[in-house]
């Protein structure tokens, strides 16, 4: 499938270097039916890319394919020009891609804080022998992680919930928790699957602020999102999908005036 030209200026600048994340002709079938078909897209470092489209367009499938929880039936996926296809989700995560889930997947019988503490990579005391060595071995790095977790909780306005069970959170709080948890991994690319779904309007502002701050620090974000105001204020580029295919790319305003997109939304 041919690359569509992208007109936004910020994007052009970024395209001078190679894409950090690239999909080439990726397809996925479920029992003969294509969930996504022949998808190609490039995401550049520091970009925020929105993946929009009507329900059933295959947006979440793309997230799962990149994260490795689904395997593509065709095509290739690259992170920094290194192929990801076929790797297990945990390997992909260790290479620097963190994600949230469409259906919240919090660790419900751990506290909010503990949820965050699970995330950091290569923790001391996370293996058997480190654990047996006791707190004096892992306590130091643990304290640092706790400090960072408290910082995030403060920024997202969830400090008061730190020691509550994650399972007792509201739907919106779980979303935020997953975003925070993904950030705790220290990823290079963050995949967000409907991060604002169910989140209280007041909190969406905070979420945006934090994501912008992270973007400014160089984090690359690919998000599936329905809330158009959020997409407009966050995304440098949007990719529109319908029926498993990419039908348009560009800034939100560009794709909005695209007749194919309008048709897809009306028909979808």
């Amino acid at each position: 499938m041919m690359e569509m030209s992208v007109v936004s200026e910020g994007v052009r600048e970024a395209e001078v270097s190679a894409p950090i994340l690239e999909l080439r002709g990726v397809s996925r079938q479920f029992g003969g039916v294509h969930a996504v078909e022949d998808i190609s897209m490039s995401v550049y470092e520091g970009q925020v890319v929105g993946l929009i489209g009507p329900n059933g367009a295959g947006k979440s499938t793309i997230v799962s394919l990149i994260a490795g929880s689904l395997q593509s039936t065709d095509g290739k996926i690259f992170l920094d020009q290194k192929e990801l296809s076929g790797l297990a989700p945990d390997v992909i995560a260790r290479r620097g891609i963190a994600r949230t889930f469409q259906v919240s997947a919090e660790f419900s019988r751990l506290t909010v804080l503990q949820n965050l503490l699970v995330a950091p990579k290569e923790q001391k005391g996370e293996g058997l022998f480190g654990a047996l060595a006791g707190r004096r071995y892992w306590g130091g790095s643990e304290s640092q992680n706790i400090e960072r977790a408290f910082e995030l909780l403060t920024q997202f306005g969830m400090l008061a919930k730190a020691n509550d069970y994650a399972g007792s959170m509201s739907g919106g709080q779980r979303r935020l928790l997953e975003v925070m948890r993904a950030i705790m991994v220290g990823p290079r690319v963050l995949l967000l699957d409907e991060p604002t779904a169910g989140v209280h309007p007041n909190m969406i502002g905070e979420l945006r602020e934090q994501l912008v701050r992270l973007r400014n620090q160089g984090l690359t974000i690919l998000m599936v999102e329905h809330e158009m105001d959020f997409v407009r204020s966050m995304c440098d580029v949007v990719i529109v999908m319908a029926r498993g295919r990419v039908i348009a790319k560009g800034t939100l305003d560009e794709v909005r005036s695209d007749p194919k997109v309008m048709e897809a939304y009306v028909a979808g």
Binding site: P89, D90, A93, R109, K124, E126, A131, G134, R135, A182
Partner: peptide, 24 residues
Amino acid sequence: VSPFGRTLRAIRESEAAARSLGKD
């Protein structure tokens, strides 16, 4: 009480989520 135990409990709660955080 260790991070190891916490990771195990996390896996118990959601394997998929633990994997997405890079846990083996």
